[in-house]
């Protein structure tokens, strides 16, 4: 990741779609020396942080709420601890993490001018992403069978919304990687256009990191007895009138 981020020397990649980076067409160089699209991507990721931050805050506020209602005899299951399959999701999380590695390899390949390597690793990354998505699709249908839908209870609502939006991000990433792969197969992505790959990589790594956070908060921290973390969080939430 750090490597993907820190490769500044590719700043003048082929930027057809903007006037702030490429110099092949006589545009002035940029003020920072960085390609404009890369700065735009960083700004987008900062913004997307706030988006996931909001959804994650929502999830954490409602975490444990379904149990509470159930125990009070006012809500229905399925409840998180009955339904979340940690080993299964650990595997798909591992798959997604590995895709970050292949992404790094894809970028490293094209920076060395290795077009074949780029294609292989791009394909691998897209494939791993697709496997993750397949896993999520299977997980969702499985939950559906066990009676948990978007509107079943507040757990279902917040769970499907949070993980669903993450899945949507992965989907966009896979489409993006596939587009790059197709462009490459048609002779498009040359060494001097490694930046195209780098920017896709930034996005891809970000989506991965978000999953680590979601995986921890949604799956790993236990629900059954309201844990210390949620307990303290509850106190804080009550301070601002929630929970």
């Amino acid at each position: 990741m750090a490597q993907a981020v820190a490769t500044l020397e590719t700043a003048h990649g082929g930027g057809e779609s903007h006037i702030g980076g490429a110099d092949h067409s006589g545009h002035p160089p940029t003020s920072t020396g960085l390609d404009s699209r890369k700065i735009a991507m960083w700004a987008f990721l900062a913004s997307d942080c706030m988006f996931f931050g909001s959804l994650i805050a929502m999830y954490m506020i409602y975490r444990g709420e379904a149990e509470r209602l159930y125990q009070a005899g006012q809500g229905i299951g399925p409840l998180p601890h009955e339904i979340l399959d940690i080993p299964y999701t650990s595997i798909s999380a591992f798959v997604l993490l590995m895709s970050s590695l292949t992404m790094v390899l894809a970028l490293a390949s094209i920076q060395k001018g290795n077009v074949r390597g780029l294609r292989i690793w791009l394909g691998a990354t897209a494939l791993l992403g697709a496997v993750f998505l397949g896993g999520q699709f299977f997980e969702f249908t499985e939950f559906k069978h066990e009676g948990l839908g978007l509107t079943t209870n507040i757990f279902g609502s917040s769970f499907f919304t949070l993980t669903g939006f993450h899945g949507a991000h992965v989907t966009i990433g896979v489409i993006w990687l596939m587009s790059l792969l197709i462009m490459s197969l048609r002779g498009g992505v040359r060494k001097d256009q490694a930046l195209n790959v780098e920017i896709a990589g930034l996005y891809w790594h970000f989506v991965d990191i978000v999953w680590i956070v979601i995986f921890t908060l949604v799956y790993l921290i236990p629900y059954d007895e309201i844990s210390t973390i949620t307990h303290e969080a509850e106190g804080a939430l009550r301070q601002i009138g929630l929970g």
Binding site: L55, Y62, L150, S157, T161
Partner: peptide, 27 residues
């Protein structure tokens, strides 16, 4: 992004029948 997320939750409440902002549903 904060209002984007808030509006998405509202859209789910209105279009899909979730209860993010409904007290009775745990929201």
């Amino acid at each position: 992004p904060a209002i984007t997320a808030a509006l998405i939750l509202l859209a789910f409440d209105r279009y899909a029948g979730t209860g993010f902002y409904e007290y009775a549903a745990g929201g």
